[in-house]
Design a protein around this nucleic acid. Sequence first.
RNA 1: GCCCAGAUGUUGGAAUUGGUAGACAAGCUGGCCUUAGAAGCCAGUGCCUUCUUGGCGUGAGGGUUCAAAUCCCUCUCUGGGCACCA
Length: 807
Amino acid sequence: METYSATEVEAKWQGRWDELGTNLFSREDLASAENPYFNLMMFPYPSAEGLHVGNIYAYTGADVWGRYQRLKGHDVFQPMGFDAFGIHSENYALKVGVNPNDLIPSNISNFTRQLRRIGAMFDWNHTVDTTDPNYYRWTQWVFLKLFEAGLVEKREAPVNWCPSCKTVVANEQVIQGLCERCDAAVEQRQIEQWFLKITNYAQRLLDGIEQIDWSSRTLTAQNNWIGRSEGADIDFPIVGRDEAIRVFTTRPDTICGATYMVLAPEHPLVEALTNDEQRETVDAYVEQAKRLDLKARQYVDRPKTGTWIGAYCENPITGAQMPVWVSDYVLIEYGTGAIMAVPGHDERDFEFASTFDLPIKRVISRDGSNNAGPMTEAYVGDGVLVNSGEFDGLSVAKGKRAIVQKLETNGLATGQVRYRLHDWCISRQRYWGPPIPIVYCDDCGAIPVPEADLPVLLPRLEQFKPDDSGESPLARDTDWCSTECPECGGVGTRETDVSDTFLDSAWYFLRYPCTDSDEVALDDEMVKKWLPVNSYIGGHEHAVLHLLYARFVTMAFHDHGILEFGEPFEKFRAHGILTKDGRKISKSRGNVIIPDDLIAEWGADTVRLYLMFLGPFEQGGDYQETGIRGPASFLDRLALSVAEASDGEGDEHVLQAMHRTIDKVSSDIEQLKYNTVISALMEYLNVVREGGRTCVKQELEPIIVMLAPFAPHLAEELWERLGHNSSIFESGLWPEADPDLAKVETFEIGVQVNGKLRGSISVTAETPEDEAMALARSNERVVTHLDAGEVRKVIYVPGRILNIVVS
RNA sequence: GCCCAGAUGUUGGAAUUGGUAGACAAGCUGGCCUUAGAAGCCAGUGCCUUCUUGGCGUGAGGGUUCAAAUCCCUCUCUGGGCACCA
C-alpha cells in the first residue's frame, strides 16, 4: 500500500513555505502583527563538524513550541543566528591552519542547510552572525552604552601566564598546572583588563528571580552563583599599631572562638605587618603563592599552607591576642581578603589549626552543655554559645545579633551583605572577537570610540596566532593600532584586546527584530512590539553565565533608559540532554551522531517525532536507533488512514476518545511533555483503527493539527489531502476539547480487600458507596476474600478506588 | 565537601500527583500475508508459582497510611554544576 514518501513531501512543503514566505516576516509584518509571540532558542556556535543530533533535539523541541503557539493563533517570530566569534572557533582555525574569516562562512552555510532540512520555521530574513561587522558594530555600541552608564572599569586582574610561551592561557588550557602546549608550569600574572560591573546588580539579579517564569533548576543555579551571604565586617585592632584588620564573617557569634587571623597573600597589610624576623619566610611564601596557576590555587583538597607574619591582633570581644598568619586558603577577591579563624567551628580553619598547632576552642555547643575534652572536628551546626563570657547561653542567631550590636557601639563592626558573584572580565588577549572600542592617548587616557566611528573593524590578520608578546595578535598590526585620539585629535593607540564571546550573546535577542535597521542597534518600535522574549529554550549549561549576563545587560539598559523592561526572558525552559545507550554523547567518547544520514533515510518528520518521543523534553532521553521504527510506522499508519478515510459522521466512541486526547495533549504540551503528547496521539490512532475499521475524515483532522508541531511537513500534506487548500499553520487551528464528550462516564475502578487488589467494578462518578459495595459483592474473588472476616471499614473514593478493610 | 537532578520490565519511558504499577513504543516469541521484509495485520511478553489460583515486585533498609513508585527518615549508586566564598 502506497503511503507517502518523506523525501518528496518534505521537499514539496519546504519549497512551498519558502515560496509563500510562510515563516518570514517583512518589516511591515513585524510592525503590524496583532498577536506577537517571540519564540527564542539559543543560537549555535557554528562548528566545522556541523549540527549533531543533540542540537537537532534542542531545536526541534523549541520549534515544536513555536509551531504550537502558531497553531494557537499567535504571530510567532522565530529567528536563528550564529554565535561565531570566540576561542572555540579560533582554536579550531589554528589547529587546521585556516583563517577563521574563511572558515566561519562555510560553517554557517552548512549549519543553515541542516537547520533548513529539519523543517523548523525559522525566519531567515532576521538572522544574526556575531562576526558580521553589521552585528559587532552594535556589540561595541553595547559596550559604549555600559561605559556611559558607569558600568565599565579597567583594573588589574590575575590571568594564567605561561612563562615559556609568554602568553595568556585560558583555564581550560592549563592541564594539571602545566601549559597544554609546552608543559611549562603556568603561573598567575596581574594584567590590566576591562570589567563590566555586574556586581552592582547582584541584589537586583537576585530579586528579579521572583518575577520570572524559568525552570527552577536554572533559577537555583543563578541563586547559588550570586551567592548572597549575610554577616558583619569586624575590625580587629593590630597590637602596637593604630590600625585594624577588617574581616567579613557570617558567624560573628563565634568570635570568642577566634584564635588567630589569616590574610590572603595579596593582602596589602601582609607587607606592612611582617616583622624583620619573618620577612624572608613570608616573602618566600607569598612568592610561591603567586606562582601557582589560578586553577591549582583553587584546588580544595590541597593541604593547608601558610606562615606567621610576626604580628598580633586583639580580639575586640575577649581582648585576647591572636597571631596573624598569611595563607592562600584565604582569597583576596572575596570579602575583605582577611578572616578571623575559628577552628572550632569552621572546617578549613580546623584543618589549618591542626596543621600548625594553633589553639582550637569550642564556643558553640549543640545542647548548651560545656562539653569537656578537645574537639576532633569542627562543629558547624546550630546550638548555644559557651565559653563566650556574657554571651553564654544565647542561641547562634541571638548571639550573632548581640555581638554585632555590642561591637557596633564601639564602631568596630557593621552588618554587611556580600555576594560571591564577581565582576565580569571581558578582556581577551586574542584575535577572534570584536575589538574593544577604546583608544589610548598619552594626554587623555583611555577614551571610548565615538558611536559614529563604529564599527572598529577587526582587521584580517594572516598571522593570528598568539605570540610571545603577551598581547593580543592585534597589537602586531601597527597600522591598525595607530589612530587619532577621539578627544584631542592627537596620537592615539587602539585597545588591542577583544571582548568576550558572552558579550556578543548577552544582547543578540534584542537585535533580531531590528535587523532591518542599519542606523540604530535597536529600533524602538520593534523592541516595544516584540520584547521581552516570550519564551526562551536552551541548554542548562548556560544557566549562569549567558543567562545572567543577558539579564544584567537588560537591567543596565533599562536603568540607562534604553529599554522599558528589566527582564529579557519572561519564560525560560532548559531542555534535557540526549544520551546514547545511557552514556553522554561526546567527541572524546566517539559516539557523536551526525543527523544528516538519519534524516536522509527516515525523513525529517520521523526524526523529529522520534527525538521528541524519547523522553520528557526537559529531562532529555536516550537515543537508541532501533526505536525510530515506532514513530515511523505511526506516521505511515496515519497516512494510510487518511488515504482510506471517507466523509461522514464520526463514531461516538471514537469522538469521545478524540476529545479526551485533545484534553490530554493540550495540557501535556504546555508542560513540554512531548513524549506523552505523542503517545496520546498514538493511542488515539490505535482507537481509530481498532479492529481494522476504516475511519472518517472528521476523526482524523484534529489529530493532524496536534501532530503538526512535531511532523510539520506530513501534517501539511495530509491536511491538503483531506481537501484543505490553505496551510495548516495559517489560522490558529488548535482544537478545543468539548467537555461533554471528553468526560469519562464509566470507570473501571479497582476493588481492594485490605489494600490488595482483588477485582474491579464498573462505576460512574455518581455511583454511591452502597451501590459500589453491592457491585463488589457480586465479584466472586472479592467475596472469597471478604469471607475471611468481618468488614471493619470501607474506603470509597468515587472514580478511584474501593478498599474494604476486613479482619 | 556543597548544591541540583535522577534510579520503575530486556530497553526508552508512562502512572490522573497518595488510589488497579508497567500506558505508548522498541526488542523478543509465535502466527497470518508475502518471491522477499527494516512493510502491513493478529496474539503473547515484570518475576516466581501448585499456571483461570496465589505470592513477590518501582536502587537498599526502616517508617506514616485503609492504601506508597509517589510522603518522612537513613543509606547506596548515577549524571550535572560549583568548588578554600569565611
